[in-house]
Design a protein around this nucleic acid. Structure first.
Lengths: 117, 117
DNA sequence: ATGGCTGTATTATGGCACTGATGCACCTCG
DNA sequence: CGAGGTGCATCAGTGCCATAATACAGCCAT
């Protein structure tokens, strides 16, 4: 299921990826700070180091983290804002339309649910 | 992925399942009407008959369609409302909390987006 | 009754994604 | 220089998904 966002049986490396992205946006991993090593995060999350590495991979490709081989991976300057901007655009263009149409089909109104929670 | 909801590369049988569910809720397959045969829908969708059968399977298990072997599968009375109710509950308890928290993180307000579209 | 339509069961196969174990290359510090 | 920390590459195993080829079981109009 999917792959798919809310899917519970979702690939581990994607769940980790989302979790890390959230931490960067929220400032839990400040700019310039070193990310947990693949082994450390793997041990903490009960996952395989390679799975963690795969989760980190995309951030490297996108230039959001800087890799110093033999040392560690660091959050680059402006990563949080760039990441937020990118995720927001992706959400609005790819996810929100489907969510909105599904809610309409189910007779739900986003404005109502916005208040309750 | 999930197998995740909005995932584009999602198993065919799940995409078909969602598509059929939407058609039932929207009344495209009215109560008492016969669903397309597995072979017909397979040909139309360019899929394998067994894959379509797998998509139909869950509706049988849930008692939303009645199977008349040798004839076809029919939408039972009240299926649309039961299906909508079930999907709504599932959406609110499993998907909406995550969606809401993600929107908050990205600085988006459901109430605002409810108007725009 | 027979041909043609339904759904279903069986088995086999190819592909793909995810996960995992091992070892290597690189850097820093004492 | 050596120990212990980094990330990274390679290979293999596993399971799900989709497809295919058949064959079978039930119903109905001609």
């Amino acid at each position: 299921m999917n792959p798919n966002r809310p899917n519970p049986n979702r690939p581990v490396y994607l769940k980790l990826r989302d979790q890390i992205a959230a931490a960067i946006i929220d400032g839990d991993y400040p700019e310039g700070a070193m990310l947990p090593s693949v082994r450390a995060l793997a041990a903490e999350q009960g996952a395989n180091p390679l799975t963690v590495a795969k989760a980190y991979q995309q951030f490297q490709n996108d230039g959001l983290v800087e890799v110093q081989r033999g040392v560690g991976m660091y959050v680059v300057k402006g990563a949080a804002e760039r990441l937020r901007s990118r995720e927001r655009a992706a959400f609005l263009s790819e996810e929100w339309p489907e969510i909105r149409s599904r809610m309409a089909r189910l007779g739900l109104d986003p404005a109502d649910l916005a208040l309750t929670s």
